[in-house]
Design a binder for these strands. Structure first.
Lengths: 154, 154
DNA sequence: TAGTATATTCGGGATATGCCGAATATAAGA
DNA sequence: TCTTATATTCGGCATATCCCGAATATACTA
């Protein structure tokens, strides 16, 4: 073991990747896609499908599907190369993909609840639903301004 | 049809409930629990398990499990009654359950990524990870202050 | 303490999801 | 146009999830 600081880098990588899966799977991201995302975050350069297949020990079809899914989420960018069909993947430089998904969820939730409020019989229920909707919208707006500030940061 | 405004209230209720399911299922909430939540949001008073069973046309065991799950999420409150074992369920008056879950997700994501940054070899990757973590934390903080303002609101 | 009303747990079956490898499609170069 | 390198689609299998109904547990009353 050449360096005491490099204690099992493989293992640390793997823990990171699995941790990402443990966080993203409950949010509805399939296990393999979540692991791929963790893997790409740790990669120092864009990675080919074949490399992914080797490193993550999954089939190529699975890798292809997972990469495509991450692209849909805008979490990952695909870059072609001229002269070959090979595609390379890397994390998107726009980190807001997941945040935007949360924002959209809150918006739709608020819209649905407001709609429900309109067609609700009891006054109490109507009030409750309106309040909820506003609460969710307030949180969405907070995220939105946070993002604006972030973009405008030094 | 006694009232032109009451156009198929059953159907509207059902659409609301299903809409809630369509929104929550992608976030990892089981279909039945999501529908139950929608149902409770529209209810004007706390509801018993047997009533749920009748209205939602699900088995009692399923209703029990779904209600318990919603309690875990703190989306729903159970209130006992003295003199009987019967439990009643209603939406929690604290609407922050889902928001808090999102906040926790962001926190843990940021923590994991920071950890990954520390054990990352390339400078570029380290920077990327640090930036990401801060971005997620900024959003979490934004939600947190939004909630504080909300609690302090008129 | 027995009896009743209610809630919960649990095993089994149905359904959905995710992965693989083979077959197919697509792009590039000869 | 043919060949090669690469990516994608698809059918089938393995696994996980979810719901039901029966069995069990629990709280309450008498």
């Amino acid at each position: 073991m050449p360096n005491i600081r490099n204690k099992e880098p493989q293992q640390i990588r793997h823990r990171f990747i699995q941790g990402m899966a443990d966080l993203l799977v409950p949010l509805g991201v399939p296990q393999t896609a979540a692991r791929l995302y963790g893997y790409l975050l740790l990669s120092d350069a864009p990675v080919s499908l074949d490399r992914i297949v080797a490193d993550l020990e999954i089939s190529k079809s699975t890798a292809s599907v997972a990469a495509h899914l991450l692209e849909m989420y805008t979490l990952v960018r695909r870059s072609g190369q001229r002269g070959t069909r090979r595609a390379l993947f890397e994390p998107s430089d726009d980190y807001s993909g997941m945040i935007n998904a949360q924002k959209r969820s809150l918006e739709r939730l608020a819209a649905l609840i407001k709609e429900g409020a309109r067609s609700s019989s009891s006054r109490k229920t109507r009030e409750r639903l309106r309040t909820m909707a506003e609460f969710y919208l307030a949180n969405r707006d907070a995220m939105e301004s946070a993002q604006r500030e972030w973009s405008a940061r030094k």
